[in-house]
Design a protein around this nucleic acid. Structure first.
Lengths: 114, 114
DNA sequence: TGCTTTACCTAGATTATCTTTGCCTAGTAT
DNA sequence: ATACTAGGCAAAGATAATCTAGGTAAAGCA
């Protein structure tokens, strides 16, 4: 009866960075953002819709992305998100912060190398 | 008036791995674990006590660490934590998972390299 | 005496993610 | 016609992890 066990979809605290980075390449609608990230990661990451949309709301609130309604290539009503200039700055900032934390983790995890 | 702003102490979801790794080198009491991680990371990471002790409780509950009371070199009452065999297995597992997620993130963040 | 450091711990708030559910539309199969 | 599937948006509630803030206490020093 136990089913999924321990599988983790992504590293908490990195979703916004991933979204901003994805939008940095091209404006996309929500559903496509999730697919894009999953594909680009080679299926190592997966974005649940219940994580995605709240995250997009946060990004909108901070004005790091803008959104407008439109029609997709598949003829569906879509909301397309676009990186703002301030969002681009934020992306840079998050990349820096993430890199710093990662370096810290790396040092703790391999403490024996000079 | 604004003071610290955005500073992040660590990457959510990595604390247990860091603790396990630290205890893998030697048994330590709680306070020392936090100091050790901070030092080993070159001050890039910082463990708040309000994060540390709940995390240690979780690790105890899962029996990934054991604990016993004693007296420190500074003559203070301390609770010393030690990695269990099952904790060592868990550490390996967490390292693997973390590596996988990291690889996924890396692919998303540098999509242009072949 | 009082201050600082070391050391433990908990409660509550905050935040992020996941699970679940709901709604709607277009295209396709029956 | 009807049903099913995929694409698309979003909110509600649960769960989990971290942070803020506090409280306890003992050792050592001024």
């Amino acid at each position: 009866m136990s089913k999924n066990e321990n599988r983790r979809d992504l590293l908490p605290g990195t979703l916004e960075m991933l979204i901003l980075q994805t939008l940095c390449r091209s404006a996309l609608h929500g559903y496509a953002i999730a697919q894009d990230i999953q594909q680009a990661s080679g299926d190592l990451l997966q974005i649940e819709e219940g994580s995605l949309y709240p995250a997009l709301q946060r990004l909108l609130r901070e004005e790091w992305v803008s959104a407008e309604w439109g029609i997709s290539a598949r003829n569906r009503r879509v909301r397309t998100y676009r990186l703002t200039p301030s969002g681009r700055k934020q992306l840079k900032h998050e990349v820096t912060t993430f890199g710093r934390l990662l370096e810290g983790i790396a040092r703790v995890m391999r403490p024996l190398e000079s």
